[in-house]
Simulated scan of single mutants.
Amino acid sequence: MDFSGKDKATYVQETFNAIAGHYDLMNSLMSLGMDKRWRRLAVQQVGAKPGMSILDVCCGTGQFSMELGKTVGSKGKVTGLDFSQKMLDVARQTLAETPDMHWIEFMQGDAMELPFPDNSFDGVTVGWGLRNLPDLRKGIREMARVVKPGGKVVSLDMAKPSFPGFKQVYWLYFEKLIPLMGQIWAKKASAYQYLHDSALEFPAQQELVKIFAECGLENTKYINLAGGVVAIIVGTKPKFY
């Protein structure tokens, strides 16, 4: 993958800063509006309940954090962390326009070095973020570190469909049409070419559950959505970690 002479972290940060204003629109277009349902399913998988404290890593424009906030309620807490200031600006604007969701907080930070003590959260989520990390395993280990024993780490991200015929059509759509849509609506075809390239290089869901286990999580599983185009990956921190 060509990062134009920059390291991956810098390239990703600049890319998401550039598309922040159109990011939610593009997500809806690319997913045909299914992204909202996918986030709700991921909230269920992390086991979010009223009163819980949840960390949303790589929170972007805050859509996942907002969905979590609806579930944990005013007695809970959702912390959304991202290193793109422009994405956080959109998240905070959305939060300001939402009736009383004061239990959601957005902050800038590095997923490689989460600024929280061990065992701080009841659950940790990451939506479309793992493939952007410069060190996948280090990022997962950090999430496992800050979740409480018995708590879950849940990823929602692009996956690799396996059905013959369907997977070829999917990758053709992703390679050709998504960058074109990015150029039309976000004026940034290169950013959406990166989304294709990063999804192509990202481990398949079957491999990702093994990586979750390597990083100290147990009872790992994946749940395919939309025929395996997207997958939820779940791992639980052992009670005696």
Rank of each mutant, 00 (worst) to 15 (best):
K6H: 08
T15S: 06
I19F: 09
D24F: 13
G33F: 05
D35W: 00
K36D: 14
R37H: 13
Q44R: 10
A48W: 00
P50Q: 11
M52D: 15
S53Q: 07
D56R: 03
C58Q: 01
T61H: 15
S65L: 10
E67D: 13
V72E: 01
S74C: 11
G76S: 12
K77N: 05
G80C: 05
F83G: 10
S84A: 14
L88T: 04
D89K: 13
G109M: 04
F121M: 09
G123F: 01
V126N: 05
G129C: 02
R131K: 12
R137H: 15
A144W: 10
A144I: 05
G151F: 09
S155F: 12
S155D: 07
L156E: 00
M158W: 13
K160I: 04
S162N: 13
S162E: 07
G165T: 15
G165K: 04
F166C: 08
Y170P: 01
F174C: 06
L180G: 14
K187C: 07
K188I: 03
S190E: 08
Y192I: 03
D197M: 12
A199E: 01
E201H: 06
A204Q: 10
Q205Y: 01
L208F: 12
K221C: 08
I223F: 09
N224T: 10
I233Q: 07
